[in-house]
Design a protein around this nucleic acid. Structure first.
Lengths: 331, 331
DNA sequence: ATGAAAGCGCTAACAA
DNA sequence: TTGTTAGCGCTTTCAT
């Protein structure tokens, strides 16, 4: 069997309580006693059992992170932000992929609550009544990262997707002076809808008669971008600019245009979203909306630590700034 | 306070033991009793406390995953493989980034052992004596994923990096009939060394007098690829083929060559490594070595479950197959 | 098929 | 400054 606090106490001729105090850095221990205890801890190779501690103290110093897909470049950067701040505050992360599947999301929340996490960072699709209900079954704080909650009942960190899309659309509008195409992702995430709203609003504000054939929905991948352009090029009306819901799709769009003999940005301008690393890894480099993924994760985790510490929080709903980053895919 | 097994027992007029049996699917329960218990569990909204269970049973059904950097596309795919198999076997993952830093790695192992994980999947740089010693301090199984252990004492899942690099180099050699350049990553990982060995072996077998100036070490990033080419093009001797340690670097290499007015593959052929998603997201598309990241993670986790179940394992050191995937960056 | 009871290893009053 | 002790919520013998 492994060494317990009791073994240490016995060997050091003190009580368990004293060992516990030493281990937890409680100042009420005489230096000589502390030294004695520390020495026997070292000698016996004692390692505190966090599970026992968790049971007794009702704190596990671990938080759950529910994420659609860790292999997506977008979410993996977000997760890195979460993890770095978690480490800074001595928390560990239990990470699980939900694939944006509601049943799975609910099940994961349940599992994490069983494991007595001290808090949850949730990333995903739409937040439903069922999610809220599930979160409410335990009394742990929850923070949404890059995830919308229409009811605004949960704290969240986001950028203003609607406004960002509005600005991107306007940017293209100014340049090409006609309706740019819009390529939507097919994810079940609310930001998709918000981006679309921003796009439509910009057209409306410019008094443009909307041509629906310029709005295409495709899988949110590189290949989805390729297919979208193929559809677009089959049509009569060819766009002179394309606003694409994500960078990865946008890279597909650029390549597909180029494969079709069109030049970017001379013939068609392309505008992405997110500023993930791939936006630099394409020629021409991609004009895009900078969404600070790492920061969203970091701020979300920081906010969660505040809730877990029962600190005062002034603003639950954080909107981080975004900006347009112009590169070579637009004129 | 929340509902405990005791509350359920009292409400259902049975003992804690019976409730425990029902919760754990023990067949020795009369169906009517089971139903009664299940109903009151439902009614009270009872959720088992996994921490208490972990303390009593000495099993946490969670495993630790130590990873250099989750935001790297390579490791995030690997992690996805680990997570999927973990979920399949009802395990959760505690994920932590080590940044390939030895002190941090050792500390993370310690933390995870404190949290009583049932096993550890380790990804990282070199395995040292200190790592082994640290692992030995607890009696939990460890599996290395995409990570070498010179001493071969730990189970591991890898591909044959040396052989793969040998084949890639040979491929270029056959085409350009002179020494291709080699761009190394600067990571502190052993596979870097193995790739280099494979490259050198191929040159040796082809009786080529090695020109050291064609061997460049750079940061393992897109920008590292760009810098490497810049250095290469400053030199007298310009290569007609370049073997690059990772795809992301290779994409940088291609763009940098193109920016310098060279055509790929006509003037310079480029060969990558890993077959990450970016290898398709570049024009020309990248010839590369297929390393099955997802599978490495999945197999590693599967192997770990076997160890955790004390099943018989015939082969500790798994070498997964790799292959050359030719695309348009080579002739 | 069911129950009683002894832990699992620790924390946190409370007492001294 | 230190020790005693009662849990934390569950699993797991051992009886019955």
């Amino acid at each position: 069997m492994s060494v317990t606090i009791y073994d240490v106490a016995r060997e050091a001729n003190v009580s368990m309580a004293t060992v516990s105090r030493v281990v937890n850095g409680n100042p009420n221990v005489k230096p000589t006693t502390r030294k004695k205890v520390l020495d026997t801890i070292e000698r016996l190779g004692y390692r505190p059992n966090a599970v026992a501690r968790g049971l007794a103290s009702k704190k596990t110093t671990t938080v759950g992170a529910i994420i659609p897909d860790i292999s997506s470049i977008f979410f993996s950067e977000l997760t890195r932000g979460i993890e770095d701040i978690a480490t800074m505050y001595k928390y560990n992360i239990i990470l699980s992929n939900s694939d944006q599947n509601k049943e799975k999301e609910l099940r994961l929340i349940d599992t994490m609550l069983e494991k007595q996490v001290d808090g949850i960072v949730f990333m995903g699709g739409k937040i439903t009544e069922d999610h809220i209900k599930q979160f409410k079954t335990a009394n742990v704080p929850v923070v949404l990262a890059a995830t919308q909650d229409e009811t605004k009942t949960l704290p969240s960190i986001n950028i203003d997707y609607r406004q960002a899309a509005y600005e991107a659309t306007n940017y293209l509008l100014n340049s090409i002076e006609e309706q740019p195409a819009f390529i939507k992702g097919n994810d079940y995430v609310q930001s998709n809808g918000l981006k679309f709203e921003g796009y439509m609003q910009a057209l409306r504000d410019a008094s443009i008669d909307v041509d629906e054939s310029l709005i295409i929905e495709e899988e949110t991948t590189y290949n989805g971008g390729i297919s979208a352009v193929n559809k677009l090029l089959e049509q009569e009306k060819k766009p002179k600019g394309i606003f694409v819901a994500t960078d990865e799709m946008a890279v597909g769009v650029i390549h597909s245009l180029q494969d079709g003999g069109l030049r970017v940005p001379e013939d068609v301008e392309v505008f992405g979203f997110n500023n993930t690393r791939v936006s630099l890894m394409v020629r021409p480099t991609l004009t895009t909306i900078v969404q600070p993924m790492y920061d969203i994760g970091a701020v979300a985790m920081r906010l969660l630590t505040k809730f877990m510490n029962k600190e005062e929080v002034d603003e639950q709903t954080v909107i981080l700034p975004h900006r347009i980053l112009t590169r070579d895919s637009t004129k």
